[in-house]
Design a protein around this nucleic acid. Structure first.
Lengths: 346, 346
DNA sequence: CTGTTAGCGCCTTCAA
DNA sequence: TTGAAGGCGCTAACAG
């Protein structure tokens, strides 16, 4: 018995009256083992409650059948949905998942990466923090196992990736509002330094500019990093003279702040103001009115991520040759009740 | 070099010009190593990008520094919040987390348990599926590592646990409604066979009975297993003659269905009907009106779970002697706008 | 204080 | 078809 009290392959072998090699072959289906022996081994294993020691197996085989999942922020429902889907797909493919949440903290991200490296996970799905830290790309490049970026890219890191077209996401939001007649609109976003926010801004702004209704600078609320900041920004927009007839929040944290601010006023959605955001949320559909959103195809993202990563694990040669897959998926509009035509409000 | 391309302790030893034992001691702080050597070893390890092979270490030491997290249903926000908090606490204590979602599926739960056993995780946090499967208690009893139940207990399985007082949760909801003058109330729940739902029902019903206002059988909607069923049940309640002045949904899935149904009618909350449920939800506070809920102390639950489990890992003797900790935490009421006094509606 | 050595449990040649 | 043996990388005993 091992220290854990669990039986080892030796004890199975003894009980079945065969050698350890035969047990291994019988249980794993590798090598040739006669049918009667196989049955005897299996029932011996069963009766002892034998479970092969994963660490020993990994040490020997060089594979762990574990995937690392490094998430920037688990409180974000978008990531949560992704985690759940990836776990399901990985599990179906026979892989377990070690979950790491960095909470948008560079130090934690670094420690988590180190840990995943120590664990020798077979592959890593990276949903990195926004905050860059020195040496990060170097550390990531040194990861010898297959890895894949989801949601955002990292400058200087060449690797497989699955992202969405964020410029298109911004444009979809804009075109929807334009079609409803909106010309004076506001936008709440985080830092334009951040890739994703910037692309969403670009798509949104360009579409309005192209339509001959450029967005006024005073309606561009940048640097709203969290729900509270978004709430404050929203109050500014709502209180401004000739306020916007529609507001676009570039992600769901910010949308929460925006909706909170609106709820604190007597302004009615969508009659007096239209609201649109990105990312579906569990509550978006039970709100009254329902929230119009640009959807990210979460399941498709997860699917592409797992498929690509497992492919790399099975055949790492291509990646080593410097070939990388960059999958870009398309967001789409889901119209619910929070957006409406410009009315008397204008 | 190992097959993974990562350096081993031998290479660090060679570069530092010492033996592997010295490297191990220097890096782990075990044994005595002179300061200059320690520095030399550390810089050698650093320059090679050495990361100790966790499987090899586990095989040797008998500990993995990994916790298993077995969750019945990751789509439930309550579990999600728990997972996030547990991951954070475990990580802070130097443990990684393998996340398993059973999706309320017995087969997957069984496979996940087997996997966690093979991985030789140091401890398991169990949030088991509602669905029982044959032999389950036996399998769980055979897990040799420390384990702990969260949220619900399992008949016949003696082990540490952290739960909340669900009877109290039901009573808190009832007392709140009683204080507001409600006497004719409805309830939407899953199966009374299920421990948690039954306790919530008991607390709720007993409080009303004690107040001389027993709940009418026609207002007791049992067997609403999901959001859709809850929605249908809610429609029945709302359409009934002399409909209830308040409705209690015993969990957040069901609350979603209830709120959806109400949104499909013209009935106004809380003027015409009060709504109360259990579990906070990210959107409960931005709803208009905000949702009154009986809160589960999620952080406290996670904290108790991790603390207790790590305690067992550090000192397993007590558990082996048959002593078990059963921690029961108290829910509390959070009043927001969805409940109000009975008015003309009555 | 530092080095040598013996396994932890498993799988995979290689012989029989 | 089956068995014996070596070694994956590491740590803990024991020697020096």
């Amino acid at each position: 018995m091992a220290a854990t009290g669990l039986p080892t392959i030796r004890e199975v072998a003894r009980l079945a009256g065969v050698s350890v090699a035969t047990v291994s072959k019988a249980l794993n289906g590798s090598g040739k083992v006669s049918e009667p022996l196989k049955v005897r081994v299996q029932s011996a294993a069963e009766s002892l409650g034998y479970a092969p020691h994963a660490s020993a197996r990994s040490l020997r085989s060089g594979a762990t059948r574990i995937l690392g999942l490094l998430v920037a922020d688990l409180t974000n429902p978008f990531f949560l949905h992704l985690v759940e889907t990836i776990e399901r797909l990985a599990s179906a493919a026979g892989y377990s998942v070690i979950l790491c949440n960095s909470g948008e903290n560079a130090e934690r991200e670094k420690r988590n990466l180190q840990m995943l490296l120590s664990q020798r996970v077979d592959g890593i799905v990276l949903m990195p923090t926004r905050q860059n830290w020195p040496g990060r790309v170097g550390v990531l490049s040194n990861l010898t196992m297959p890895r894949l970026l989801v949601d955002r890219l990292l400058d200087g890191l060449e690797t497989d990736s699955v992202t969405i077209d964020n410029t298109l996401a911004g444009r979809l939001a804009a075109e929807h509002l334009l079609a409803l007649g909106h010309r004076r609109v506001g936008l709440i976003m985080g830092s334009p330094e951040h890739q994703i926010a910037r692309h969403r801004l670009d798509g949104f702004r360009d579409a309005f500019a192209a339509a001959g209704a450029p967005i006024e600078a005073r309606f561009l609320e940048k640097d709203a990093f969290d729900e509270a900041a978004a709430r404050a920004a929203a109050h500014r927009l709502l209180a401004s003279p000739e306020r916007p007839t529609a507001i676009f929040a570039t992600n769901n944290h910010l949308a929460l702040g925006l909706l909170g601010a609106i709820a604190e006023t007597a302004i009615e959605v969508p009659r007096e103001i239209s609201v649109i955001t990105i990312d579906d949320l569990p509550w978006a559909r039970i709100m009254r009115p329902g929230l119009t959103v640009v959807m990210q195809p979460t399941e498709a993202i997860a699917d592409a991520a797992v498929t690509t990563l497992l492919g790399r694990i099975a055949a790492p040669e291509a990646a080593e040759a410097g070939e990388h897959t960059a999958i870009v998926l398309k967001p789409y509009l889901l119209e619910r009740g929070s957006t409406g035509p410009v009315e008397a409000a204008a």
